[in-house]
Amino acid sequence: MTDTATPSAPRTTADEVSRGMTDLEQIKRLKSRYFRYVDTKQWDEFRSLFTDDAEVDTSEAIVDPHGFWDGGRLPVVTPDAMTTALKARMTGVFTCHHGHDPEITFHSEDRASGVWAMEDIVRRPAGSELASFHGWGYYHEEYRKVDGEWRFTRVRVARLHVKQIDHFPAKD
């Protein structure tokens, strides 16, 4: 009797699986911190999530079929510029960001990319000139492992839909 079994695919070692799961969890936690630091206005911590040469692209951050957005999109900017802009724009603003269903691809031991479904609420105080909104879309990201820690090297947010919502009511 001859062996008709086909050759098996190369096997992944337990260490490779463990390292991959650890790296995947680290990238998930990186994204979780990104959302938490924006929502809790921890700007120094937010900035620390990026490499110094990273790019942040918000050119597709707002889909505006209703004409309520001010057109204040930022072009592709550095993490320092993004942090400064967010700090200025988010004073007194309630935000809640959620990311889910990550699709992470590892390109090497220290490079990865990912796509995250997202939903956010940006609610401004009464009298604000900028719109409050509820948005849905995707983050497209690239990561690099630096000194054993995953960091963002590129972040692009692309909202597919934005719904205008009410500002916070004026305080009495």
Rank of each mutant, 00 (worst) to 15 (best):
F152Q: 03
M118N: 09
G99R: 09
I27N: 02
K31I: 04
A88I: 05
D70T: 10
H107F: 10
R144A: 15
I104N: 04
G148N: 07
V155N: 06
W43K: 02
D172G: 15
W69C: 00
T78D: 09
D110W: 03
R29Y: 05
T95V: 08
E60I: 00
G20Q: 09
K87C: 11
M82D: 13
L24E: 05
R156Y: 02
P10R: 05
K171F: 07
R33W: 10
P125V: 01
G135W: 01
E16T: 07
F106P: 04
V56T: 11
L74F: 04
G135R: 10
V56H: 01
S48E: 10
T105K: 10
W43C: 06
W116K: 01
C96Y: 08
S18M: 10
T78I: 10
G114C: 07
H97Y: 11
V157H: 07
E141K: 06
P10N: 01
T58A: 06
K28Q: 15
F106G: 07
P125I: 01
D53C: 11
G71K: 01
D23G: 01
F68C: 00
R47W: 00
C96I: 05
H66Y: 11
R151W: 04
D39K: 03
V155I: 14
A170G: 11
M90T: 06
H161W: 15
T2W: 01
S32M: 03
Q42A: 13
S128M: 00
H98C: 06
I27V: 10
R159F: 05
L130K: 13
D166N: 08
H167K: 04
R154E: 08
S48T: 05
V77S: 07
D57C: 10
Y34P: 03
R151D: 12
Q42D: 09
P102D: 08
T83G: 04
W69V: 00
A54K: 04
D101G: 12
A158V: 10
Q26A: 15
P75W: 05
T78E: 11
T12K: 06
L160E: 13
T84V: 14
D53F: 11
F152H: 09
R154K: 14
D80H: 12
V115K: 14
P10Y: 02
R159M: 08
I121E: 03
F152N: 10
R151M: 13
R19H: 11
G148D: 08
G114H: 04
R123A: 02
T58E: 07
M118Y: 02
T51F: 03
H97R: 07
E142T: 13
D64F: 03
T84H: 15
D70G: 12
D39M: 02
R89N: 12
H140V: 14
R11H: 14
R11C: 06
S108N: 10
R29I: 05
Y139V: 07
D57Y: 09
T13E: 01
I104E: 02
S132K: 00
I121Q: 02
D172C: 06
E119W: 03
E109S: 12
R29S: 12
